[in-house]
């Protein structure tokens, strides 16, 4: 017996099944809950339900004659298909991460990142230097405007200087760097081991002022036999609560260094001898934390949204202009 071959229309009708729509939304809901529970690492799971919904919508558009009679409605649904597909692709190729960069140094990578499985890693092409920031505070203290000066190599290879801010990221090679509320002090220390090569490092103390009572960190440079505990002794009201102020480095306050029974207060330029080497406190700088985001689909998604809304508006306009609301059919 020869079975009839299912034609394309039949397949499209099957794909347009409302049951598939419900299944797609149920899976999308489950994936959204997974993102809630597991965080961004589950974001790629959204791709499956979105692709399923896109296929379902393609089936509906292909099998329903109303779309061939009403052009704006067809355009709206095609834009919606493009949007759903782009959202799915976005979850496979995006990146979200965080980086901390010491004042006066170059970006050297992310300390935390979540990326889609197909993310085209081009972060090593990004080159910028954090040239310091200026943050104003309102009484509270409440962080107000954050301005961060960056020197960077643009995609065309030219060097540029830009002031980025809360709503204005640095965009390089598709990666968007937003200055975050995460920032603090970074004492620059020179470690001169008894054996081995000297190490110059900046220790990023916990974010300030949110951790103003715990401005300390353990540091173990290469060649050191144990951790060196360092603390910046800053006054509680460095950023006062009762008046407007700015973020400023407490240059006049000492850096406390402790290892075992040894405790020393150091000023910039001072050196302390330890059994396995010397530590020299060079200067106090700041560090800035960045939220990093990559998604090449953004302009395309926005375009699809604009087309969708315009065509939806045109569809309703045509439909409602044809007949007043208070007239019978």
């Amino acid at each position: 017996m020869i079975l009839p071959q299912p034609n394309l229309l039949h397949i499209a009708t099957r794909l347009a099944s409302p049951k598939l729509t419900l299944a797609g939304f149920a899976l999308l809901g489950a994936a959204a809950i997974a993102v809630y529970q597991l965080g961004d690492s589950a974001a790629a799971w959204l791709a499956g339900p979105l692709l399923l919904l896109a296929v379902n919508l393609i089936g509906a558009v292909a099998s329903n004659g109303v779309f061939r009679r009403q052009l704006p409605l067809l355009v709206f649904h095609l834009a919606l298909i493009a949007l759903v597909l782009l959202a799915a692709i976005s979850r496979l190729t995006y990146l979200k991460g965080a980086a901390d960069v010491t004042e006066g140094t170059a970006f050297g990578g992310l300390w935390r990142q979540v990326a889609g499985p197909l993310h085209p890693d081009r972060l090593n092409e990004v080159q910028f230097i954090n040239e310091g920031f200026d943050i104003s505070y309102k009484p509270g203290p409440l962080r107000d405007l954050t301005l961060n000066r960056v020197r960077w190599i643009a995609d065309d290879g030219r060097e540029r200087v830009e002031q980025i801010a809360d709503n204005r990221p640095l965009v390089s090679h598709g990666y968007r760097f937003y200055p975050s509320s995460n920032k603090g002090f970074a004492p620059v220390l020179l470690w001169l081991p008894k054996e081995g090569v000297p190490v110059l490092g900046a220790v990023h103390l916990p974010s300030f002022p949110v951790n103003r009572f715990t401005q300390s960190r353990d540091w173990r440079p290469a060649g050191a036999k144990s951790d060196i505990w360092i603390m910046l002794d800053v006054p509680e009201d460095l950023i006062p609560a009762d008046r407007a102020s700015r973020f400023n480095a407490p240059q006049q306050y000492p850096l406390v260094l402790r290892r075992g029974d040894l405790r020393r207060e150091m000023r910039p330029g001072e050196r302390v001898s330890l059994p396995d080497g010397d530590v020299e406190y060079r200067e106090l700088r700041t560090w800035m934390g960045y939220s990093v985001f990559y998604d090449w689909t953004l302009p395309w998604m926005l375009s699809a949204c604009v087309v969708a809304v315009l065509s939806m508006g045109a569809h309703f306009w045509n439909k409602f202009a044809a007949k007043p609301w208070n007239r019978e059919n």
Partner: peptide
């Protein structure tokens, strides 16, 4: 229907704002 058009516009404008404000256009 008018509400749908403006609700869609609200979501789009909100996503653009969220991208600039928090570095993501949609985070569920």
């Amino acid at each position: 229907a008018l509400g749908l058009v403006f609700n869609s516009l609200m979501l789009i404008a909100g996503a653009i704002w969220a991208q600039d404000a928090w570095g993501r256009y949609w985070a569920w």
